[in-house]
Design a protein around this nucleic acid. Structure first.
Lengths: 267, 267
DNA sequence: ACCTGAACACCGTTCAAGT
DNA sequence: ACCTGAACACCGTTCAAGT
C-alpha cells in the first residue's frame, strides 16, 4: 500500500544501502513523511478536499500534532508536498517517455503523453499541482518545500530543453526567427498545462463538454508543433498513429491501470 | 471607489431606470454584494490571501455575519464570486476587442490581448479564477454561483466561436481535417489560459524567469494560430506590429492604467 | 422578511512537559 | 534530540431572538 507514494514522492527517501547516504534515523523520518502523505491522499480520496484537515490527518495517523508539524510547516505545506509528489510521478513517466524510439517530434509527443497520463492517473495529485499554483497555498508553504518544487519543475524543463536541442541539431525542428529554446519549451509547457488544467477542472463546463469524443489534447499539440515548424508536419504524418503507438509501446502498464479504473493505491 | 467592482462584477446590479427590472430592495441587495466583494478584494490586496476570512470581512464591513452569509453560502463562495467578477471584467474587455478593425486573425489577437490584459490589470481577481478552478473551492461554492460562472464562460466561448466562424466563412481560416470550431475554440482557450496561468503564478520559477524580455505570450499565439492554418501566417505578417496597434487603438486606457501601476480601485 | 451577534464546533498552530 | 497532547486563538457556520 505504501509503496505507491514511497516510489513516487521522495527519491531522497529511497534506501541506498551501498552508499549509506542517510542514517537510519533520517530514513525513518523520510518514510514517515511518505506515510503521512499517503494518509493525506486517502483522506482526500475518501471524502473530498475539505476532508483534509490537520486534525483528521493527526487522527488518521499514529503520530501527534507536534510530530506532524515537524514535517509540515502548515496545512498548505501538505498540499505543496502532494504537488511535489505529483511532479515526481510526472518525472518518472517523462523518463519512460524518453525511451520511445521515433522521430524527435514523436518523442515530444511521448513527453506530452507522459504529462497527460500523470494527470489522468493521479487526478488528486494533479489537482494539488493546480492548487499549489494558487497564491493562497504558495504564501503559506515552507520555503524549503517551494524550493524543491522549483527544482522538480526545472528538472522537467531540462528534459524538454534537451529534446528541443536535439531536434534542432537534427534539423527536424527549424525555429522561426526569434524563437529560442526557452521560448519553445515554455510554449510546450503552456499548451499542455492549459489543456490538461481545463480538461481536468472544467470538465463540466460548456466549452469542454462539447468536446467529448474528439481528442482535443492531441489537436492542440499538432497545431502548436506545426506552428513551431517541427517536422514532419501533421499534414505529412499521422500523429494519431504515433500517439497510439506510444500508448502501446511505452505506457501499456499505465493504460491497463487506467482501464481497471483504480489508482495503484487501491489495487 | 465602489464603481470599479459595480461595473465589473455584476451586470445584474446595474440600475435600469427605464425597465425597472429590479425593485429598490433587490437593487440595494445587489449593491451590498458589490460592496462586500470590494472589501474582500481590499483585504487580499492589503495583506494577502490568508487575510481573507469571514471574520475580517465582517469586521471590515458595516454588516453582521448573518447578513454576509445571506450573500455567500461559504467562504469559498466569496472566492467564486470574485472569480465571476474577473470573468465579467474579461468579457468587458472582450467586447472592446471586438471593435478592432483588421483581419480575422488580428481580431483573434485582440481577444487574446483582452484576456491577457484582464489578468494583468486585475491580478488578484485572475488569481481567484485560478483558485476557483481548484476542487477545494468548487466543492464548497454554491451551485447558483457555479451556474453563473459557467454562463459567463459560455459567453466568452460564444464570442470566440463567432469569430472563428467568420474567419472560416471569409476563407482566412482553413481548418485542417477533423478540426471543428469547438476544437479550435478550446485550443485558443488552452494556449491563452496556460500561458497566463504559468506567467502569473510561476513567475519566480526557472523556466519562466529566463523568458524575461521576450514576449512568450505572443510567440505561443503565433505558433498556435499558424498551426491552425489561420491566414496570413506569422511568416507573412508582422503580428508584433498588430499587437502594438491593438494596444494603441483599443486598449490605450488600459495601458495607461497599467503604466500608472495602480489598479483603478486605488486611483 | 430580514438582520443581528452570541454561541458552538472545529480547525490550525504552539509549546511546556515528558521521554 | 525528538515526541506528546493539552491549550489557545481564531475561524466558519448556525440560529434564536430581535426589528
Amino acid at each position: 500500500m505504501l509503496k505507491f507514494l514511497c516510489n513516487i514522492t521522495n527519491k531522497e527517501s529511497r534506501s541506498c544501502p551501498l552508499e549509506h547516504r542517510f542514517s537510519k534515523k533520517q530514513q525513518a523520518i523520510a518514510d514517515r513523511e511518505q506515510e503521512l502523505l499517503h494518509i493525506a491522499h486517502q483522506l482526500v480520496e475518501a471524502e473530498g478536499y475539505a476532508n483534509l484537515t490537520m486534525d483528521k490527518l493527526t487522527a488518521a495517523s499514529p503520530y501527534s500534532k507536534g510530530t506532524i508539524y515537524n514535517h509540515f510547516s502548515s496545512k498548505e505545506d501538505v498540499i505543496t508536498a502532494l504537488c511535489n509528489a505529483a511532479l515526481r510521478h510526472e518525472i518518472s513517466l517523462f523518463k519512460k517517455a524518453g525511451l520511445f524510439k521515433g522521430s524527435s517530434r514523436e518523442k515530444a509527443l511521448a513527453l506530452h503523453q507522459a504529462y497527460f497520463l500523470s494527470a489522468k492517473m493521479q487526478p488528486i495529485l494533479f489537482n494539488c499541482v493546480l492548487t499549489a499554483k494558487s497564491p493562497w497555498v504558495q504564501e503559506k508553504s515552507s520555503s524549503a518545500r517551494i524550493t524543491v518544487q522549483q527544482e522538480l519543475e526545472k528538472e522537467v524543463t531540462q528534459m524538454v530543453d534537451q529534446l528541443l536541442q536535439q531536434a534542432i541539431d537534427a534539423n527536424e525542428l527549424q525555429p522561426k526567427a526569434g524563437a529560442t529554446v526557452d521560448l519553445m519549451a515554455f510554449a510546450n509547457w503552456a499548451i499542455s498545462f492549459g489543456g490538461i488544467a481545463l480538461l481536468s477542472s472544467a470538465s463540466e463546463t460548456y466549452s469542454v463538454e462539447r468536446l467529448l469524443g474528439a481528442h482535443p489534447f492531441l489537436y492542440n499539440l499538432n497545431c502548436m508543433l506545426d506552428g513551431m515548424n517541427w517536422l514532419p508536419l501533421s499534414t505529412d504524418w499521422d500523429y494519431c498513429q504515433s500517439w497510439l503507438r506510444i500508448e502501446k509501446e511505452i505506457f501499456s502498464a499505465e493504460q491497463q491501470q487506467l482501464a481497471s479504473g483504480l489508482p495503484p493505491v487501491l489495487r
